[in-house]
Computed example of a mutant assay.
Amino acid sequence: MPAPRGSSEGNVARQKSRSFAVIGLGTFGTTVASELARFGNHVLGIDTVDRNVSRVADTLAEAVIADGRDEQALREAGVGNYDVAVIAIGEELEASILCTMNAKLLGVPTIWVKAMSRTHHRILTKLGADRVIQPEQEIGRHIAQMLHNPLVRDYVSLGNGFHVVDFRVPGSLEGKRVDGLGLRDKFELRALGLMRGSEFLSCDSGALELKADDKLLLLGRRENLRRFADGL
């Protein structure tokens, strides 16, 4: 169990890592829990199915069989001492709601919950979940964006319509300078930098000449990024 929040040991530990309780160890929950553990965090995995718990027993700091719908079971597992609860029981609406309520009652500071529908999303938001995730929709939008324009290798949404895009420079832009692309004046975009192989190059001066397959990092609104990419 992680050190209680507020203790000096806990404060020192959180400078390096955080503690997470992942409730629901299906494919999504197991992936989240395993990656968090790989990053060096203390992770508790909880599921009602023995084989799901056994599958992560050697990967996570702790893995227990318990029912997230049972407040006392979560209390005994020490969930209230964790920094974040990730509730990955998206397929069972009642279980997801009860587990979210229990995590709130136990005083977990941050709660992320998986949802499977818009109605589920609204209910969880009303219950006070800090972040409601719909993985299938989010990944679907992400993939559609990259399929729509193969030059877009990946992107990150910053909110309020702004994105950072990892844009693969096509052969048609070989030899052109960054300041010759009209990014600011024509598209209202900003070049944050460029990756050439494993080397990061600054675009601040605008004099940098592009090479095919460079990775140009662009910041701007989605519609402007799309106009730029579609025009090539």
Rank of each mutant, 00 (worst) to 15 (best):
M1I: 10
P2W: 06
R5Y: 11
G6T: 10
G6M: 13
S8A: 14
N11E: 13
K16C: 12
S19Q: 09
V22T: 02
L25G: 01
G26K: 00
T27L: 13
F28L: 08
R38H: 12
N41I: 05
V43I: 00
V43W: 00
L44I: 01
L44T: 01
D47N: 02
D50V: 00
R51A: 12
N52E: 03
V53N: 00
V56H: 01
V56I: 02
L60Y: 00
L60R: 00
L60A: 01
E62I: 04
I65A: 01
I65V: 14
I65R: 01
A66D: 04
D67Q: 05
D67S: 07
G68Q: 03
R69P: 03
E71H: 08
A73M: 04
E76A: 15
E76I: 09
V79W: 05
Y82S: 07
D83W: 09
V86S: 04
I87K: 01
I87R: 01
A88R: 03
L93T: 08
A95E: 02
I97Q: 02
N102G: 02
N102A: 03
N102F: 01
N102V: 00
L106N: 04
I111N: 04
A115D: 01
A115M: 03
A115P: 01
S117N: 06
H120S: 02
K126T: 14
G128L: 05
D130V: 07
I143W: 13
A144M: 14
L147I: 15
H148L: 15
H148Y: 14
L151T: 10
L151N: 14
R153D: 11
Y155W: 13
Y155K: 10
S157T: 10
S157Y: 09
G161N: 11
F162C: 04
V165K: 06
V165N: 05
D166V: 09
V169N: 02
P170E: 09
G175W: 05
G175C: 05
K176P: 06
V178Q: 00
D179R: 06
D179S: 07
L183N: 03
R184E: 12
D185L: 09
K186E: 15
L189G: 03
R190C: 07
L192C: 06
L194S: 01
F200T: 12
C203D: 01
D204C: 07
K211M: 15
D213Q: 13
L216Y: 00
L217G: 06
G220R: 05
G220H: 07
R221V: 09
E223T: 15
N224F: 08
R227W: 09
R227M: 11
R227S: 12
F228M: 05
D230Y: 09
G231L: 11
L232Q: 10
